[in-house]
């Protein structure tokens, strides 16, 4: 007599045909298994394999989304080769990032970095934002390059995203890249200033007031003529006061 499929097998069979409008109750055994596999590497690997196998088949966009949501929680380096090709596909790029952004394995960062150099321009903002959320220091040269190129090409939104990312990554290289940026577009210039302020705040939080002070002083000096110059001056001046307080307290 043939062995009866488990509830999990049945749910995965349903997932292969799943689409919007279907009753999601059929997927509940998968939901439960994803939660239950915490601390059980074997179960986790089994689930991850099942998901990646399905992703390699022709399944609906709804099913791809469902799988990416689950890999967001339990994915490891093992699923990266399956997710990485989706980064360049406009229909799936975001959900691939949805999973990859949250997977700590270095392979996930590698995939996002590699994609930044290959995906269409309209998807680059997503790669940059995910690398920023990961605070991926290795991506700084590539993001700085995007900042410069997009500024030059008048791609304001992309350049702003690149500046924002450098402000979130906050490594010494990111700070240097922001200092070296020379945008002419007002919105990009404002984003670079914002990113430098954010970087200075990070330095203050890391108890490095001298480095933070250098950024604030440079912003005060350069504020004249910038859009919202008064706002920059005030923000940087507040920063200088905070640096002085921190230095005095140390």
């Amino acid at each position: 007599m043939a062995e009866q499929p488990s509830a999990l097998d049945t749910a995965f069979a349903a997932l292969a045909k799943f689409d919007w409008g279907n009753d999601a109750k059929v997927l509940q055994p998968i939901d439960a298994a994803v939660v239950a596999c915490h601390g059980n590497a074997g179960q986790r690997t089994d689930l991850e394999n099942r998901f990646t196998q399905l992703l390699s088949q022709p399944i609906s966009r709804a099913a791809v989304e469902y799988i990416c949501r689950k890999l967001c929680l339990i994915g490891t380096a093992a699923c990266v080769p399956t997710l990485a090709p989706l980064l360049g596909q406009p229909e799936h790029s975001h959900m691939a990032r949805y999973a990859l952004e949250r997977i700590a394995a270095p392979a996930a960062g590698d995939a996002l970095r590699k994609a930044l150099g290959t995906v269409p321009d309209e998807l680059k903002i997503g790669m940059i934002a995910s690398l920023a959320a990961r605070r991926d220091g290795q991506s700084v040269p590539a993001i700085a390059e995007v900042l410069a190129a997009a500024s030059k090409a008048g791609q304001t939104r992309l350049a702003v995203a690149a500046a924002d990312a450098l402000g979130q990554i906050q490594t010494a290289a990111a700070v240097d890249a922001l200092t070296a940026a020379t945008p002419t577009d007002a919105a990009v210039a404002a984003a670079v200033v914002n990113a430098r302020l954010a970087a200075a705040e990070g330095l203050l939080a890391a108890k490095q007031p001298a480095k933070a002070r250098a950024i604030y002083q440079s912003l005060v000096s350069a504020a004249a003529g910038q859009p919202r110059a008064k706002s920059i001056e005030l923000a940087a001046t507040r920063g200088l006061l905070a640096c002085a307080e921190q230095t005095a307290a140390s």
Binding site: A104, R135, A172, A198, G202, L204, A205, L234
Partner: peptide
Amino acid sequence: MSLSADQHPVVPQVPSS
């Protein structure tokens, strides 16, 4: 998610007024 040695805590210290 691990941070490299030269990264800072995720909570910024924002001078406020």
